[in-house]
């Protein structure tokens, strides 16, 4: 089953200087029991995508087309505030970059974890037992004692693990993780990735994992989605994309990662040019201004072209781009 199915989603923001199309015809699917990574640079629309799925779009934003199917039925675009609230935290859980966003500094961790279970009929003792169980799963040492402690008594890495424990407490079917490791040191980052992998197996939920860190995506995710300037330019299995990227942007992005270089380079690869102005989107392909394959065909917006299995790319020249890496 597909847990989250975003079809043809477009989102506009009305600003003082004109209407800005933040997402254009975005298609993506998060299958059951899979970890799907979303990569893209600043301004690619990752945050808008998450906010739209969570129904937390800013006041000046509006969905202009498309639908978001959750567990194959409810269309999140048209769900009312109450329906959305019932899903958030229960069926769709989130973890953000800053764990303090999820933690209330003046309440003990135990109290907060109990509060999340407000819908459950369990007794207070049973709820605490579940909290302890969950804290143990995220490898917080001595969870019985730490339940009474306050967020500031935990280190940064521990706070993020508690935030994850809280997100997974209600056994959601979808976990949205927005750059959860970005603020952490590499050693902690690795630990969180491994933790997420384990927990996802145990709980059997799907994960939508947003990151700008290609290494993290490669290590954690089954499938991945590459976004550029509000469009999904390529999606497929992580292995397909890392080994056989077909969209010129994906290729360039992968080439830029200094982690790929095993020695010092006099000149590091970059992507010349800048993001297009989203208030005045180019008519055709979104990447045409920065692409070396651009020709007349690119003046028209390319469809999503399958290039083998579930691997899809939004590029007229997907046939030419195969083979050697950029």
């Amino acid at each position: 089953m597909t847990i989250l199915d975003v079809k043809d989603l477009s989102v506009d923001f009305v600003t003082e200087t004109g209407t800005l199309q933040a997402l254009r015809k975005v298609n993506l699917a998060v299958p059951a029991n899979r970890i799907v990574g979303v990569v893209g640079e600043s301004g690619c629309g990752k945050s808008t995508l998450i906010n739209t799925v969570l129904g937390l779009l800013a006041e000046n934003g509006a969905v202009t087309s498309g639908e978001i199917l959750f567990e194959g039925q409810s269309d999140l675009v048209h769900l009312d505030a109450n329906g959305m609230r019932a899903l958030r935290g229960q069926k769709i859980a989130t973890v953000f970059q800053d764990p303090m966003g999820a933690l209330n500094p003046v309440l003990s961790v135990g109290r907060q974890m109990r509060d999340i279970q407000y819908r459950s009929a369990l007794s207070r003792k049973e709820k605490d037992a579940r909290s302890i169980e969950m804290l143990r799963k995220v490898r917080i040492p001595d969870p019985e004692r730490r339940l009474a402690q306050f967020p500031h008594e935990f280190s940064g890495g521990m706070k993020q693990r508690i935030a994850i424990a809280m997100a997974l407490l209600m056994q959601p079917s979808l976990l949205i993780a927005d750059e959860p490791t970005t603020a952490l040191d590499a050693t902690l980052e690795v630990a969180i990735i491994e933790l997420l992998k384990d927990l996802q197996q145990q709980i059997g939920c799907s994960v939508l994992f947003i990151s700008h860190h290609l290494g993290v995506i490669a290590e954690l995710c089954d499938d991945m989605i590459v976004m550029y300037a509000g469009e999904v330019v390529e999606h497929g299995s992580t292995r397909d994309i890392f080994h056989n990227a077909r969209h010129p942007y994906t290729k360039k992005l992968l080439a830029c990662d200094p982690a790929r270089l095993s020695r010092r380079e006099p000149q590091l690869p970059t992507i010349p040019g800048t993001l297009p102005d989203l208030r005045d989107r180019p008519k055709g392909c979104i990447f045409q201004a920065r692409c070396e394959f651009t020709d007349e065909a690119c003046a028209e917006m390319p469809p999503d072209i399958p290039v083998g299995g579930a691997h899809v790319t939004r590029c007229w020249h997907a046939g030419k781009t195969t083979g050697a890496r950029a």
Binding site: T15, E16, L20, A22, C44, G45, A58, G61, L278
Partner: peptide, 12 residues
């Protein structure tokens, strides 16, 4: 976040 910054950017 970054996207928001883009959206909120005052013109002048």
């Amino acid at each position: 976040m970054s996207d928001q910054a883009l959206v909120n950017q005052p013109p002048r």
